[in-house]
Nucleic acid binder design. Structure first.
Lengths: 341, 341
DNA sequence: ATGAAAGCGCTAACAG
DNA sequence: CTGTTAGCGCTTTCAT
């Protein structure tokens, strides 16, 4: 069913049919109604491609996230989707699965599909990749830092280093000295910053950093479990562990339970993200609250701003959202646990 | 940058350029290489719309899920995406947010975008909606039942009723009689079946069903919490609770903790889905293992089968996947807990 | 207010 | 092996 058939059925020209679809006000009421009826009963839908060929616009944005099974990313995705949907845009959600090649492939696919804009969440792309997208004339915004830590691309992020610093600082404040960190291999740059925050907090107290206390892991529950086991096996086992994500903490705490090590009495924990589950596990997890949904919303708004205004100055924008430490039970110190609650 | 400019730069006709893009074997090696170079350095990407206008194919499938923040649906989505990606298809993931209107809107959007196929997960659509999609010539497959429980559309599902029966049966077997159920408002039909399974198990033992033991809730952690509170306030509090999803169980268990009711000693729990977190909460959750990822994979394969073969007989296919009870700690009976492990 | 026709960028049949 | 050309379905001038 195409516009020509509709035109014939309604006894008008294709131009008129096209008009009722795009500029209904410029068509005589009776003609319009007649055509509308024909359209209705023919269940006619204008051909998307032909339309796009003329408009060169898809009302679609691309959203690239590192892992579709990670709740923290999905909350960001939800934020993006919420504003996109409200603007009557469709979101193409792509799952990079922490693999650059897959992410690149998806970016290509998005460009091919002529999306009107792209949101990159904690991207693994190098600067040149991101610049490539811009060069194609497609607006991009980052949520969380990309691998290359690019300039000239708008970004919504939190201060990972500062947040990590505060988290570790808190552990120190309540009496811990032997503090380890489990950080995810991805997202690379953000986790590097978290390590820096961790190191800085220790350094300030004159606590020398121990290499074996800095453990890398896949950013999953399983990764946390495995890294925790390495920590457990140490001759000098840490008394507190900061993880770069809640998922890692979940896995690590599970490892502790399996080894009958009490949390927080024997090992304290501070996570990062504050995903929904973090106050449902036992003990409830102390964690850095990352405003994920808001990051998504703000990022998407920024993207639409750019798409609408084509304003170059937006490209230098960097929106820093606040995160704060959510103190719950997992960081409690045996002797001092009373003070905290 | 369009095909004409490339043709000019390379000193050939547009047809030849088009050929190297679509049937490279039919072009002389030197010509081909020359053109390829021009394409490369011009950063040319064929116009998606023009292409679609000819092929009428998008290499895209639509995937509609009820809630993007529910891990159980995301695992299904992952399964679908895995096979789509492998076939070089892009997946348009849409978040219906448990709202029919939103789901309809997304379906429209997908049809407009001329996706090559649609996967509906636990859809709220009525039969006529689903038939409408088919009528447009777009293959559909269901994963989990739609609201209307339609025939003539291929479906991948589990036996909800049987699974619920077995779960409740297990509770009865280990000694419980006062068993409640918390079921989500969505997905409607599936949860209805779970209730039926629950009722049947009780009936078999001559346990009369009590209306106040059948609690409806939003299918979220919060929903579970609220429904559990209603159960807690009952004069005759149930000794065991079966929930239609793990998320509901999480919320309900949290409510128990807040009221200092011991799980499983005072109230036992059996959930449904076996999402990753279910063996990380305390106590580890006994639950029905639903093969979510596999459902996604099988559903997607089925869709591609239909897209490839246009085989009508597929439409009557119903693939029933096995689910089984995963017994962990939360269902343990005070006196008999020793027997189970 | 409506129609005729050009053109959006690409593919494929046809001719050479 | 390559070029010419007729569409694909729609939008939009330009006439009328």
């Amino acid at each position: 069913m195409n516009i020509k058939e509709i035109a014939k059925k309604a006894g008008v020209s294709v131009a008129t049919v096209s008009r009722v679809l795009n500029h209904p006000e410029s068509v005589a009421p009776e003609t319009k109604e007649r055509i509308l009826n024909v359209i209705e009963e023919s269940e006619y839908t204008p051909n998307w491609f032909a339309r796009g060929l003329n408009f060169n616009k898809t009302d679609t944005i691309g959203l690239l996230i590192p892992n579709i099974l990670n709740p923290s990313y999905m909350e960001i995705a939800k934020g993006v989707e919420d504003v996109a949907h409200q603007k009557n845009y469709t979101t193409l959600l792509c799952n990079a699965e922490n693999a650059v090649e897959k992410e690149r492939k998806y970016v290509d696919s998005l460009q091919k599909r002529r999306v009107d804009g792209i949101v990159l969440v904690s991207s693994m792309l190098e600067n040149e990749d991101v610049e490539g997208i811009k060069k194609q004339g497609i607006p991009v915004v980052l949520i969380g830092e990309n691998k290359g830590d690019i300039k000239d691309v708008p970004i919504v992020r939190i201060d990972c280093e500062g947040a990590a610093y505060k988290a570790v600082r808190h552990l120190i404040d309540i009496g811990y000295k032997d503090i380890a960190i489990i950080y995810g291999t991805t997202p690379e740059r953000e986790n590097k910053r978290k390590i820096e925050g961790y190191i800085q907090a220790l350094a300030e107290e004159g606590i020398s950093e121990r290499e074996e206390y800095i453990q890398e892991a896949a950013n999953t529950i399983e990764g946390g479990y495995i890294a925790a086991k390495r920590l457990i096996d140490l001759k000098r086992r840490p008394r507190a562990i900061f993880t770069s994500s809640d998922l890692l903490a979940f896995g690590a705490i599970d490892a502790m339970k399996d080894h009958e090590i009490k949390v927080p009495e024997e090992v304290a924990f501070v996570g990062f993200d504050n995903i929904r589950m973090s106050n449902l596990i036992d003990p409830k997890l102390t964690t850095v609250e990352k405003p994920m949904h808001k990051m998504g919303v703000v990022g998407a708004r920024l993207l639409f701003d750019i798409m609408d205004t084509k304003d170059e100055e937006n490209n230098s924008r960097e929106i820093l959202l606040q995160s704060k430490l959510k103190i719950r039970k997992s960081c409690g110190h045996r002797e001092r646990i009373g003070e905290i609650f």
